[in-house]
Simulated scan of single mutants.
Amino acid sequence: MDSISGNRRFWNQISGAYQQKHDARIGATPRLWGTYAIPDTHLRVLGDVTGKRVLELGCGAGQWSRALAAEGASVVGFDLSEEQLAAAARAMGTARYPLVQGAAEHLPFAAGSFDLVFCDYGGLSWAPPHLAVPQAARVLRRGGRLVFNVASPWFEACYDEAAGRATTTLRQDYFGLDTIDEDQGAVSYQLTYGDWIRVLRGAGLVIDDLIEPRPAPEAANGYNKTDPPDWAHHWPAEALWVTHKP
């Protein structure tokens, strides 16, 4: 299905409230992964980006892009929402980098343009993976990496929509994971682990690692409610994929 127009409208409508709620946490420290804000210094995923050409696929207000640009990367911030890009432009500061509007399903970049394509949720949560992953692979140079963090399929399978939280009960059909109806006609996407592997390999990528970040029992989730509160200490809430283009 075509989710571009609905998702663009959704993020344009919620951008201001989203940044007001989350920007202080996201922007407080560089390189924080996921809903539990786990530092990249703990996960050791991105490494040194100095001098590398980097595409953030769904940059939002640019907190990640801003940090990597300050480290010496040549970053392009890419997002579907003009309101999110406007927030990124306002917060850019001295580490300047280009901002491009578009859909992850149709990347407007030449093949082999980037050393690293990455997102923390972003483009690979809000675009059909079977379309967006091949596009990301296309714009990578040989040896370049695609690194992305998404919700774990088990978190989605245990999410109780009526209660608005993840629980210890399976609520959704794991094998039925595909599109998730969000508010205001928007659509996000989720795959089983097997389907993620098939999509990544089908795009010609090599899977180097699958990290399932495990927050401390007392760690707070800044986006979702869970029952029990330390749900993600016991079961994977997120999946951080590390791949490269041979």
Rank of each mutant, 00 (worst) to 15 (best):
R53N: 09
I14Q: 05
V75C: 08
V199A: 00
T179P: 09
R138V: 05
G93Q: 14
A157G: 07
T179M: 10
A110G: 13
G34E: 14
F148M: 04
A163Y: 02
I38M: 11
R141K: 13
G194R: 10
G77P: 01
E212G: 09
L200A: 01
D79Y: 03
G60P: 06
G58F: 11
V49C: 08
E71T: 08
R96K: 10
D23S: 10
V76H: 01
G123F: 01
A157S: 08
W231R: 03
Y189A: 01
F118I: 01
A103Q: 13
E156L: 07
I26A: 07
W33C: 05
D227A: 10
E238Q: 09
Y193R: 10
F78P: 01
E212D: 02
Q63E: 14
L124Y: 00
A137Q: 00
V147L: 12
V147G: 01
I211G: 07
A91N: 15
Q20M: 08
G123A: 07
I4R: 11
D209W: 12
A67D: 06
R25L: 15
P215I: 11
P30R: 06
A163P: 09
R31K: 13
N224A: 12
V150L: 04
D230E: 13
W154R: 07
F175M: 10
Y18L: 07
R66G: 08
W235K: 04
F78Q: 06
P229V: 06
I211L: 15
F175Y: 10
L177M: 11
A203Y: 00
D181A: 15
V117I: 10
S3P: 05
Q84I: 08
W64D: 15
T167D: 01
L99F: 05
R66T: 15
F109Y: 05
G62F: 07
E56G: 00
E161P: 02
P128K: 05
G51A: 08
C59K: 02
L80T: 07
A28G: 06
S152C: 13
W235S: 12
R138K: 12
P129C: 08
R198M: 05
G27W: 06
A232P: 04
V242T: 03
V139F: 07
R96V: 12
G102L: 11
L116C: 04
S152Q: 05
D40C: 06
Q135I: 02
Y121F: 15
G202W: 03
A17V: 06
F175S: 02
F109M: 13
R165S: 03
Y121E: 07
A203K: 00
E82T: 10
D227Y: 04
A87C: 03
F148T: 02
D178Y: 15
Q184M: 10
R8L: 06
G51W: 07
D178K: 06
D195H: 08
S188H: 01
V199C: 00
D173L: 10
S113H: 08
R198N: 14
P39V: 12
N221W: 11
F78M: 05
L68M: 08
R171Y: 03
T50R: 07
D178R: 14
P228V: 14
P39A: 11
P215A: 12
Q101L: 03
L116S: 09
R141L: 05
D178N: 09
D230V: 03
L46V: 14
V242S: 05
E56H: 01
E56R: 00
D120C: 10
Q63T: 14
A203M: 00
L191C: 07
M92F: 02
L57C: 13
T192K: 12
A95N: 14
T169W: 05
G62T: 06
Q84Y: 14
